[in-house]
Design a protein around this nucleic acid. Sequence first.
RNA 1: GCCCCCGUAGCUCAGUCGGAUAGAGCAACCGCCUCCUAAGCGGUAGGUCGGACGUUCGAAUCGUCUCGGGGGCACCA
Length: 586
Amino acid sequence: MKSHIASLVSQALEQLVADQVIAADALQAPVIERARDASHGDFATNAAMLNSKAAKMRPRDLAEKLVAALPASDMIVGVEIAGPGFINFRVADSGYRSLLPEILHQGHSFGRSTLGAGRRVQVEFVSANPTGPLHVGHGRGAAYGAVVADLLDAVGYEVHREYYVNDAGRQMDILATSVWLRYLELCGEALVFPSNGYKGDYVWDIAATLHREHADAYRHMADEVFDGVPIDEPAGGDKEAHIDALIERAKKLLGDNRYRFVFETGLNVILDDIRDDLGLFGVFYQAWYSERSLVESGAVNRAIDRLRDAGHLYEKDGAWWFRSTDFGDEKDRVVIRDNGQSTYFASDIAYHMDKLDRGFDRVIDIWGADHHGYVPRVKAALQAMGEDAARLDVLLVQFAVLYRGGEKVQMSTRSGEFVTLRELRKEVGSDAARFFYVMRKCEQHMDFDLDLAKSQSSDNPVYYVQYAHARIHAVLRQAAEKLIDVSPSDGEGNLDRLVERHEIDLMKTLSRYPEVIETAACNEEPHQLTHYLRELANDFHTYYNAHQFLVDDAALRDARIKLILATREVLRNGLNLLGVSAPEQM
RNA sequence: GCCCCCGUAGCUCAGUCGGAUAGAGCAACCGCCUCCUAAGCGGUAGGUCGGACGUUCGAAUCGUCUCGGGGGCACCA
């Protein structure tokens, strides 16, 4: 509908260019938008205001010429010039009615488009370190990333969802060592657990499994383990030096194979948990990409060599640095530490190179906002390698703060006291969590009201939208009980019976759905969809309250059934995109 | 100190590639079930868009400064 009007306007503009009213090279593409106020009609364009300079005439005068040049259309019943030079269009009711058979015919595919057809996009999201269960911060990234991916899919992109598994590096060594130390405690060794180790209960669980299945096979005397290790912070020492020494001791005492076994036991248990958790949250991936595989395949070294060959690396203080300041970064960054180990950043360079090498037209990274300082260096690395950094978009998701009973829920990773995604799902349910997480745009700090998410009332937007869907099914069930046939007639039959204000309003809202999907997808803004669904549900509830659907007049009943079936379709499609269920009964 | 995000109704937020009287939900107040689920609907009230200056025919929207909140500034990941 919008595109129809856009084409009418551009035809008129071309006509004026042909008539030499407007200089062709100065022509500006107009914006067609939904009129905010019903008194302005349905659509408006600023074409005349934008091009008044190019035409060297006043906006309203140009508007008159434009209107005169507009091709005729059945869909349009009124065109007027208003305000400073807007051209307003009024769409015929018949134009809206003709949409209903289209919706019913297209079903699940209504609202989908081919904007991104033939283009491949990769969306990487969550990618939390597998050092513990996902918490509620990851939940927001998961919900947001999943919906962005589905929206891009809906507008025709070929979407590849990926989770980058940070299974290499020091944090994983700390996890493996934490598991081993807990295991030693279970074996009966007395020791003081390092202050910088992972203290969550899940570490005990993994250790217990190890102990149950392998008894004392990995046991070493505590005295032997801690012998010569620098003291921990609470004892007046350095916690980093303490844990690093313990890692070295674990590797030495266990040997490569046994250390690796403990390491992988921890990794696998946690990764399985994360995968399971996300699956129950309705979040799925095409690939889980291992950082370790990048290291082991030599991809990291190749990326470093490539930077070195291009002259972007230098050696200082025993480490190798990438001169990222040449590409706008604040300071240069280390890629190989003085101990010879490559940094996480080096892996990330290799990973992003690999993404681009895989031929994606677009690469989208969804990160926590605390990583924002990391963006310039990744882009710098891509530029340094002669790649187009614009192919990479990094979307930063702000934190979510939970509220219960009006009070902020305190969380602290340090003490191991944090709310996990699993706990959140259990408390408010997957539907509410998914919906709430994407109600706000990603750069907005979010207050997540647990009580509201749980409440079964119209205050809760999730229930409100789902209830509209369930209500339509209730009507259909009611019809079945009364033995009324509700299978709709063909095409536009009887639709001219839809004349009530509520009916026209509902149809207008339905007609917006494809536009909402398009803008939500193009701007990576799922909240556009949640807001829209609330409006649609509101229009439906209002209609429901004002009119009976299962009326005796068969033709009118048929028309109304078509309208509510179309509404059901759009509600269901929208909820599906959000990963929220569309219940038939509540 | 430098960098990023945010500041709109009592609360939570839309609106921000400049456009026509600034919107919604909640909370408050007033109404609506002999009728397909009242998990619903309608109405009233509520605002110097943090502040100042600037750009423009036109600024919540763009620029500079400023105040307030959050986050980031590792040879951690």
